[in-house]
């Protein structure tokens, strides 16, 4: 739910967690985005970093330059006049994906779990526009939602020690893309040739909080030609 009054919790001596709600949803996302934009437009004294997420913002500060109680007061004042409708219009990006086979080792398992064909999983996954709620876990990893109900799938019981770069994956009602090789517990159904993260580019992450994403099924041959 979207909290009527935000919860403020300290995380150690140099961070304040501002919790605006506790679910995955657009109303909460808009409020998080609006507060994030407001705090970027008018930075608070002593604040060194703000990490927005599904339902919260973590405000990291220099403990010798400000205090959590002061930051909390300042945030409370900003929230009073915050207009969550004033966030920029979302961009829509298309992400090509080769589904199944060596690129999507869990596609058949996901299909079996839901009692549908792999083709139906692909059709469902490409049937909706996803919203990028946050970037986290590793540089450039987009947390997107929500999956069609028929695709809501638990995480793998035993996480993989290495998931290849570009892997497109599912976990509960979320879908995401691994920007670089890493351990991971999500179900992998395909792979994209797009580079999700490139430190030499600005912005470094291909997808950003607030973007909209549509997946397009492509063949292995088409993927070859997709290099940026």
């Amino acid at each position: 739910m979207l909290y009527t009054n935000p919860e403020y919790r300290i995380m150690g001596d140099r961070a304040l967690l501002v919790e605006l709600g506790d679910h995955i949803g657009m109303d909460l996302h808009r409020k998080v985005s609006a507060l994030f934009l407001a705090l970027n437009d008018a930075p608070l004294e002593g604040v060194v970093e703000i990490i927005p997420a599904y339902g919260s913002l973590l405000i990291i500060f220099d403990p010798l330059r400000t205090r959590p109680s002061l930051v909390q007061e300042q945030v409370r004042a900003i929230l009073k006049t915050l207009d969550p409708s004033r966030i920029p219009e979302a961009r829509t990006l298309e992400i090509p994906v080769v589904y199944g086979g060596e690129y999507g080792p869990d596609l058949d398992w996901v299909a079996g779990y839901h009692g549908i064909t792999p083709e139906e999983v692909v059709r469902l996954h490409t049937s909706v526009v996803y919203h990028v709620y946050m970037i986290g876990f590793m540089p450039g990893f987009p947390y997107m939602g929500e999956l069609p109900k028929a695709l809501v799938t638990p995480r793998k019981e035993t996480p993989r020690t290495a998931v290849p770069q570009g892997s497109v994956a599912l976990a509960q009602a979320q879908t995401g893309i691994y920007p670089s090789r890493s351990p991971g517990g999500w179900q992998i159904i395909g792979r994209t040739p797009r580079r999700l993260f490139d430190a030499s580019r600005w912005p470094p992450a291909l997808l950003q909080m607030g973007d909209q994403v549509r997946f397009i099924a492509v063949t292995e041959e088409e993927m070859e030609g997709w290099e940026e």
Binding site: L17, I51, A53, L58, I60, G136
Partner: peptide, 10 residues
């Protein structure tokens, strides 16, 4: 829990 920002030391 819902993913959220973290600091070293958490």
């Amino acid at each position: 829990i819902l993913s959220e920002g973290v600091v070293p030391g958490a």
